[in-house]
C-alpha cells in the first residue's frame, strides 16, 4: 500500500532506476518482503521506470498536468497526460487548479478533471487536491466531492511540495467524502494521503482511520496508498527491529 516517489527537479535516469529496484525489492536482507504498489515519477521518466519495473507487479504512476502548480492551459495538460499514458504510465496523478477553485469557478475545475480523465483511457486517475492550499476543511470536502463526481479513481491530499501536506484531520474529511459518495452511487474511490507521513506509528494511525471510516475492503493497494518514501525506510527499520530485537539505524538502509 505504499508508493515510492521521486519528484525532484534534479532527478536522473539513474536515480529513477535505483528507486525502481528498491520498489521491487525493498531491502536485500529481507527477500520475502512484498514489492511496493507503485513508483511515482515525472512523465519524462515513465519509460525508464517502465523498463526497470518490467516483469514485476509494481505500477508506474506519472504526475501530469503541469505538476505541481497546475498553472498551464488545458491543451498542454491534456497533451502531457496523453503522452504519459502512451509512454506506459498505469496511473496519472493530476493536480487541480487551486486558484480557480478558490475563486469559486467549480465548473472550470470539474471540466478540467473530466477532460483529463478522458485522456487517461485505461490508466487510473488520481486527483491531487493540494489540501495545504485549500485553507478550510469545508473546501477540502467540496473539492473531494467535485473530483469524485468528475471521474477521479483516487483522491490524493498533496503534491508533497507544499506544507502542510497530509494530516489526519484532512484525510478524515476526504475519507468521509469517499464514504458518502459510495453510499450515494455505489462507486468505490481510492484514497492516497501523501507527504508528511514519515513513521510507521503514524502510518498505523492512518490505517486505523481508513478501517474505521471505510472498512476492511479499502485496506488494499487498489483503494489505499501511502505516498511517502521516507515511510518506507522507517517501516524497514521497524521490520528489521522486530526480527533482530535490536533498534536500527538509518545508516543501514538505502536512502533512495
Amino acid at each position: 500500500m505504499l508508493d515510492l516517489t521521486t519528484l525532484d527537479a534534479k532527478d536522473t535516469d539513474g536515480k529513477v532506476k535505483q528507486l525502481c529496484r528498491k520498489a521491487i525489492r525493498p531491502h536485500d536482507s529481507l527477500p520475502d518482503l512484498p514489492s511496493v504498489a507503485a513508483v511515482c515519477v515525472y512523465p519524462n521518466f515513465v519509460s525508464t521506470a517502465k523498463e526497470a519495473l518490467s516483469g514485476s507487479s509494481v505500477k508506474v504512476a506519472a504526475v501530469a498536468t503541469a505538476f505541481p502548480s497546475g498553472m498551464s492551459t488545458l491543451k498542454v495538460k491534456l497533451r502531457e497526460t496523453k503522452w504519459a499514458v502512451n509512454q506506459g504510465a498505469d496511473e496519472i496523478d493530476m493536480v487541480i487548479s487551486r486558484g480557480k477553485f478558490l475563486a469559486g469557478e467549480y465548473d472550470f475545475v470539474s471540466d478540467e478533471i473530466a477532460a483529463v480523465k478522458e485522456e487517461c483511457g485505461p490508466a487510473h486517475l488520481k486527483v491531487i487536491l493540494e489540501t495545504g492550499e485549500l485553507s478550510t476543511l469545508d473546501n477540502i470536502r467540496k473539492a473531494s466531492d467535485l473530483a469524485m463526481e468528475a471521474g477521479a479513481d483516487f483522491i490524493k491530499t498533496s503534491t508533497g511540495k507544499i506544507q502542510p501536506a497530509a494530516t489526519l484531520p484532512v484525510t478524515l474529511v476526504m475519507l468521509e467524502a469517499i464514504r458518502d459518495f459510495y453510499y450515494r452511487t455505489g462507486k468505490k474511490i481510492g484514497m492516497k494521503p501523501a507527504g508528511g507521513i514519515a513513521t510507521a506509528k503514524l502510518a498505523l494511525q492512518y490505517l486505523v482511520m481508513v478501517r474505521e471510516t471505510l472498512g476492511q475492503e479499502w485496506l488494499s493497494p487498489d483503494w489505499f496508498r501511502f505516498g511517502a518514501s521516507v515511510l518506507a525506510n522507517d517501516l524497514l527499520r521497524q521490520i528489521v527491529k522486530e526480527q533482530t530485537g535490536v533498534y536500527q539505524s538509518f545508516d543501514y538502509f538505502t536512502k533512495d
Binding site: 535490536v246 533498534y247 536500527q248 539505524s249 538509518f250 545508516d251 543501514y252
Partner: peptide, 8 residues
C-alpha cells in the same frame, strides 16, 4: 545490553 546493541 540496549546501550551496546542499539545500531544507531
Amino acid at each position: 545490553s540496549h546501550f551496546s546493541s542499539h545500531m544507531d
